[in-house]
Design a protein around this nucleic acid. Sequence first.
DNA 1: GTGAAAGCGCTAACAA
DNA 2: TTGTTAGCGCTTTCAC
Lengths: 347, 347
Amino acid sequence: MAVTITDVARAAGVSASTVSRALSVPDKVDPRTRERVLRVAEHLGYQPNRAARGLITGRTGNIGLILPDLANPFFPSLVKSIQHHAHRADYQVLMMDTDEDPAVELGLVRALAKQVDGVILCSPRMRPQDLRDAASLGPTVLVNRKARGIPAVTFDNGDGMRQILAHLAGLGHEHVGFAGGPRSSWSNAERLRGLTDGAAALGLRVAELGHFPPTFDGGRLAVESALLSGATAIVGYNDLVAVGLCRALAERGVDVPGDLSVVGIDDITLAGMVQPALTTLTVPTDIAGRAAVDLLVQLLSDLTTGRTPQVDVQTSLQERASTAPPGARPALTRPSTSGRRRPTRRS
Amino acid sequence: MAVTITDVARAAGVSASTVSRALSVPDKVDPRTRERVLRVAEHLGYQPNRAARGLITGRTGNIGLILPDLANPFFPSLVKSIQHHAHRADYQVLMMDTDEDPAVELGLVRALAKQVDGVILCSPRMRPQDLRDAASLGPTVLVNRKARGIPAVTFDNGDGMRQILAHLAGLGHEHVGFAGGPRSSWSNAERLRGLTDGAAALGLRVAELGHFPPTFDGGRLAVESALLSGATAIVGYNDLVAVGLCRALAERGVDVPGDLSVVGIDDITLAGMVQPALTTLTVPTDIAGRAAVDLLVQLLSDLTTGRTPQVDVQTSLQERASTAPPGARPALTRPSTSGRRRPTRRS
DNA sequence: GTGAAAGCGCTAACAA
DNA sequence: TTGTTAGCGCTTTCAC
């Protein structure tokens, strides 16, 4: 059996209450007693039983983390950051992957609610009403999503899209395509809006290429409409989509960035590994993770009276090799590996 | 306050124990009573408090999962699998990332020990003695690693290396280089051994290129010795190393697979995204995750009398574009993008 | 400053 | 089959 508070008490010649106090409210106990108790506890290798403590304090010391898909390379770094900061605040993380199924999420939140003090919820596609239901179960922080009345950490998509467009406009592009993510995704809507607003301000045209799964293969599917759109630069919903698109373009003999520029979003490590390296918007998951934990801890300490705290994290453009001025490389000069088709420019 | 077992008992007109029994030992209660209790519980939205239950049963319903680095793309899929199967067995997963620091791992295991029923430990570099110390704290299953007396799920490295060598030998390669992982990594030693043993059997030569960080940049570092070795095919410690090597080779104008074949290990999604697609050994994380959970659950049910169960998971070669017969493409014919240097063949 | 006592929500004897 | 009782390890009144 593990060593309990009673063991420590007996060994130190005090009562259990004193041990408890020495550990959690040190000022309410005589320095000399405390010293002795701590020494004995250490010596015996005493570790408080969190379950027992939780039973009485009502706090578990756990926070729940719900995400759509850990296999999406955007998330591991976010998770690492959240874990790191949670541990610093003495919380454990209970993570659950919903496999992109919004239907199971509410159920998970409900099951989790009893076992955690609060939840960090990453659910791009849950319906707002379900989101609010979930949040009503306990302290909740949304990541990469907003909903009225729920604290949230978001990325400044508007500014990010402006940065992308400014970069492209600076290169001379006038017509930009957007290979969108899932129709129901909140950030997809935000990004599209940021793009159209920003384009209007800069006098650019935006072509919506449609909605695609937020994956490498999803990106491949965008190649057709990308070529037909007449756009000279394509922004992918995320890096996976952008890289998938690049790959499909290469297979058709379309050169990136010579014939077509491509921009991603997220700056996952993959972006720097592909050829050409992907110009992309860095979405700082480390900062976001930290902010999410901070927000939740605040909520748990009840320091947020009435307000609904929001953090908007800044992004920054990473210029790499996948963008260049339009027509940088004359179409007929490049060696065509399969040469099935050229980008069709229409008006 | 949340609804407790007492609330349900009162509402159903029975005692708390009956409710408890109806929920956890259904056969020991009258079907009609049980039915009613369950209905009431459902209606009230009752969720057992696991902490309270754990306090008396001594079981937390949690399993701990310790990994070196979630950012290594090999792990997310393993974690997903472990989560999935853990949930099916009604366990929650407490995950901790050690950031590749074996020093903190023992501490983590110790901290975790109190809060979980068992631990799945993925620690390629912990010293065997520390491993045993960790395992002595509670039921433990090792993944991708063996140690005397500790249950483990491993991959059949010997057979995997044989598959790789057979493939390369079939293409006509006679001299194979190995871009190794960290010196202290267990699986690195296993893979190297598998390679040298297998090569001896097939009459091939193996060149050790040295030890490199198990990352994309680590792989880049291997380019020099890969070219100097005179090998016509290089096996990377994992896919990241292999892809990093491919990238560095491309930058030197060395064609893969024309000038040099490259093989990875793991079959992470990246392997199918790069150009050329990477020939690699599929290491089935889904099966491994399942096996690890199964083993641990067995251990927890105490069905393993005396034995130290081991599971060896089979791998399978994924033949893609990064391997070809040696000299498939005459060195002087290929267009050199930067052309700084040719592969130097010695001996 | 310290101890005794009560009780968090639940399960496991033990009775009935 | 069901209810009563005790107690898991801890914190927190309430006395002293």
